[in-house]
Design a protein around this nucleic acid. Structure first.
Length: 445
RNA sequence: GUGGGUGUAGCUCAGCUGGUAGAGCGCGGGAUUGUGAUUCCCGAUGUCAUGGGUUCAAGCCCCAUCACUCACCCCA
């Protein structure tokens, strides 16, 4: 590489929609991930990790037309058609089918991992992002549904997020209401759902217009919208209309049960029936839900936790019919919200004690003192850049350390060390043997 | 996939109707003895995203490419 000619530099740049997680971002992220995983485990979920790459066949056709387009797909060196995982749910279905005889049902697993979507990047939207999923496989019951929701809500609670409301719906209720309004053709029903999903964003009249563009007459369109307008949203009201149109109400009954169970868990404030919730992914069969944050500061951030029941998905990989229900949290969206709400503590990873190295003669002592602090469980950093004591203390503050340790020739001979609190400048001389305990006591205040 | 916007020092940006670049922050050094974050002084840094074009002359005009960004679609 030695040459007089200027070298052409390689472009130091991440791919569009991909990003580096620098330490300032990584520290709170990691703290979050730990809390989320601990909460999942407290609810009986086991960790699972799956490959980033799957056979294209495994993933294709599971997410609907839109989702299919967003699959990162290519051929590997062996000409195999492969794709990067689009979510954590379909790989789970594959795992259950592939390892059917090693897995005890019901199976609860969680996974925190990146997924990839060849979407057009936007604010808070990337081509690589992390999801945190928890799923219960093998049981189709209201209890399993409720357990999943309770777990998700518990995660939000653990993270300190108070203003979260889970909007719960059921696929059959959604389709039932549309059918009751007189739309029976599948494609038109889908169009209705897509439009209804926007009711909280655009006026009802605009939604109706959008429904009409799907080839539905104005009168029917108005009836469809009417099914979802405010006041038409209580369970009882929906029940009446479904029965009147002699549409099956099993989905509604399930919703009642799930709501009752979640309420019994003391989470009434956190959950609400909302017939307008529609999820895009094709594989949902039962309950579906989205969770929104109510704080106006994070109004535009979208759903932070969503999911639903998918009883048919695993059946695509094995003849045995295995039901499942799950929840998915968007890690970075949640983090963005938490930062906005000032719920992120900045010092979870920061160095606690910065050990200066007065001069080479004191290096041994400095290393030993750092060792004592570390053994005591403190995060201690040893100065490596040297220079004047002032410089070293400057670095200490910049690193965010609360305390600094200084040992000069005088302290070295006396077997002591100076412990300084960088927040108020107060300092004391302590014996080296007491350093760690004194530092620990100061940090605990 | 469709339609807007932006791209100037490490960061945030200024740069009037075209005449070969500035600020703040940050960074480096200093303000006598072994003490930071505050204060004061000094200093460095840019192929003005990239490649073409118009012009006597372009950061400023035109075209293309790339990147970022906003809205729609969809979603975490």
């Amino acid at each position: 590489m030695a040459t007089d000619q200027p070298q052409k530099l390689f472009k130091a740049q991440t791919l569009k929609g991909f990003r580096d997680y620098m330490p300032e971002l990584m520290a709170p992220r990691q703290a979050m991930i730990r809390l989320i995983e601990a909460t999942f485990e407290r609810h009986g979920f086991q960790p699972l990790q799956t490959p980033a790459l799957e056979y294209l066949e495994t993933l294709a056709g599971k997410y609907g037309e839109e989702g299919d387009k967003l699959l990162y797909r290519f051929q590997d060196h062996g000409e195999r058609h492969v794709a990067l995982r689009y979510d954590l749910t379909v790989p789970l279905a594959r795992v259950v089918a592939e390892h059917r005889n090693e897995i005890q049902l019901p199976f609860r697993r969680y996974q925190v991992a990146p997924v990839w979507r060849a979407d057009k990047p936007q604010r808070g939207r990337f081509r690589e992002f992390f999801q945190c999923d928890a799923d219960i496989v093998g049981v189709n019951s209201a209890i399993a549904d409720a357990e999943t929701l309770i777990t998700g809500l518990s995660v939000l609670q653990t993270l300190g997020i108070d203003g979260a409301v889970l909007h719960l719906n059921h696929r059959d209720v959604l389709f039932g209401l549309i059918a009751a309004a007189g739309v029976t053709e599948k494609a038109q029903q889908i169009a209705c759902i897509r439009a209804i999903d926007k009711l909280d964003k655009i006026p009802a009249a605009a939604v109706q217009t959008e429904i009409e563009t799907a080839g539905i007459d104005a009168e029917t369109a108005e009836r469809v919208v009417g099914q979802f307008l405010h006041g038409a949203m209580t369970i009882e009201s929906v029940a009446d209309r479904l029965s009147a149109a002699s549409v099956d109400t099993a989905g509604l009954d399930r919703l009642r049960e799930v709501l009752a169970l979640v309420r019994a868990a003391g989470l009434s404030e956190r959950i609400r029936f909302d017939p307008t919730i529609a999820r895009g992914l094709d594989y949902y069969t039962g309950i579906i839900y989205e969770t929104r944050l109510t704080d106006p500061r994070v109004k535009g951030i979208g759903a932070v936790m969503s999911g639903g029941r998918y009883d048919g998905l695993i059946g695509l990989f094995t003849k045995e019919a295995i039901p499942a229900v799950g929840i998915s949290l968007g890690l970075d969206r949640l983090l963005a919200a938490m930062q906005e709400l000032e719920l992120v503590s900045k010092d979870s990873h920061a160095v606690q004690v910065y050990v200066t190295v007065f001069s080479e003669a004191q290096a041994v002592t400095a290393i030993q003192l750092a060792g004592l602090l570390r053994q005591a469980g403190l995060r201690a950093e040893l100065d490596l850049a040297g220079g004047k004591l002032g410089k070293q203390l400057e670095r200490a503050s910049k690193r965010g350390a609360r305390l600094a340790v200084m040992v000069g020739p005088d302290e070295a001979t006396a077997g002591t060390a100076v412990l300084k609190d960088l927040r108020d400048g107060a300092q004391q001389t302590v014996s080296q043997a007491d350093l760690a305990s004194t530092a620990g006591a100061l940090l605990a205040v």
